[in-house]
Nucleic acid binder design. Structure first.
Length: 407
DNA sequence: ATGTAC
């Protein structure tokens, strides 16, 4: 946990936003610096959820000029968070009741919901030549996937003082979004948070890129870059549609209507201006700070925070943490936790919430112990002047995978 | 992360 690089520029173009309480592996910081040395990269930022990935770090943002790197975005193009307010009231339900209502949400999307999504699915397939057939994309729609993806029901534990409109000065739409979301917050409501991405599509797009160009990336003014950006845009739309489909099927199971509050991707590359230069911001597990309020989830056994990005985010490539960030490698979790916890014990969390996960390996890999403390991540963002807190949520039920019980 | 790939 060498934190000597935190809080100050450790190299000309690298900055890490993390206080001394945050778990930070030297390896993750090393990956950040190595990646920052790629040609055309002008600035790199590590957020407090920074952790090591396969080659490139997660919880990081990179600004490049004249060139872009599909491999930096990774295989789950468009992965992100969608937050809905349900019609349920927290005091009238319980984790056990919610678990019973939800049952298993595996398998293809109910026909009516698929039909509802079909026009947008057809449109995004029409707008870009994609490496997967439309039928496969339809088949994956409404599926959560594996890894750290989930759908979670939460109660609002605390509302903080309402903001007074001093969000980023150049972001009227963001300020409007903040006002609208704050007006929709009901302390009694149950909320639905969906974390998922573009399923097989983003991976197929990246695979084709790596096969054609390795990790060298693409010069911005080339047909190849335009081709990738078209596919990338389709993947962003597909991931968003997938989160909406997941939310709709969960709401249907809960027999509730829902109000969408936000949908924000944290894996993407977008045109941006930084230091007066036109270029691209690559976000790899980094939440954009220029689209209004965002939700930063803790682990399934921890709180989640709705925050308003502040103007100080300009120094962080307009990026924020996308969650708590892993502390332990997936491959270490079983060995560390199996001696202390039976799988069945991991189906309950310290906050009293229930975990639906009928995949034993995943139950251990995604245990709260494998993640950083969310309060250390949020404190880092607050201390750096990057966010203001809007609300704090407590998990009631985290749904990872249904089907036959594993324990 | 993945309708994984070794």
């Amino acid at each position: 946990m060498g934190n000597s690089l935190q809080g100050k520029p450790s190299a000309d173009k690298v900055r890490v936003f993390a206080n001394n309480d945050v778990w930070l592996e030297a390896n993750a910081v090393a990956q950040l610096h190595t990646t920052a040395q790629l040609p055309h990269i002008h600035a790199a930022v590590g957020l407090p959820d920074l952790h090591a990935g396969r080659g490139y770090p997660i919880g990081a943002a990179f600004f490049s000029v004249g060139h872009l790197y599909p491999a930096l975005v990774g295989g789950d193009i468009g992965c992100g968070m969608a937050l809905w307010r349900t019609g349920l009231k927290a005091h009238k339900t319980s984790p056990a009741r919610l678990e019973k209502l939800l049952g298993s949400q595996e398998g293809p999307l109910p026909q009516a919901l698929l039909a509802q999504a079909q026009p947008e699915l057809a449109a995004l397939c029409h707008d870009a030549a994609l490496p997967l057939p439309a039928a496969q994309l339809a088949g994956s729609l409404g599926s959560i996937g594996g890894g750290n993806h989930f759908a979670e029901l939460l109660a609002c534990e605390q509302l903080y003082a309402a903001p007074e409109g001093d969000g980023p000065a150049d972001a009227d739409a963001a300020t409007t979004a903040t006002t609208a979301v704050c007006a929709a917050l009901d302390p009694k409501a149950v909320y639905l948070l969906v974390h998922s991405g573009s399923r097989g599509l983003g991976g197929a797009i990246l695979r084709a890129q790596v096969e054609a160009h390795g990790h060298a990336g693409l010069a911005a003014d080339t047909p190849q870059a335009q081709h990738y950006l078209m596919q990338h845009e389709a993947a962003l739309r597909y991931a968003r549609l997938n989160r909406e489909a997941i939310a709709q099927r969960f709401l249907q199971a809960l027999r509730s209507d829902g109000l969408p509050l936000l949908d924000v991707s944290h894996n993407h590359v977008l045109p941006a201006t930084h230091d007066g230069l036109q270029g691209f911001i690559h976000r790899k597990g980094a939440t954009p700070a220029d689209v209004g309020p965002v939700l930063i989830p803790g682990s399934r056994g921890d709180y989640s925070y709705l925050v308003q990005p502040l103007p100080g985010c300009a120094a962080a490539l307009n990026s924020l943490a996308h969650g708590a960030g892993r502390k332990w490698a997936r491959s270490d979790c079983m060995g560390r936790l199996a001696p202390r916890f039976q799988a069945s014990a991991l189906r309950k969390t310290r906050l009293g919430s229930t975990v639906v996960c009928n995949d034993k390996a995943l139950l251990y890999e995604e245990a709260p112990q494998a993640y950083k403390a969310i309060d250390s991540v949020i404190a880092s963002l607050l201390e750096a002047g990057l966010v203001r807190l809007l609300a704090r949520f407590k998990p009631l039920l985290t749904y990872k995978k249904g089907g036959q019980p594993c324990c």
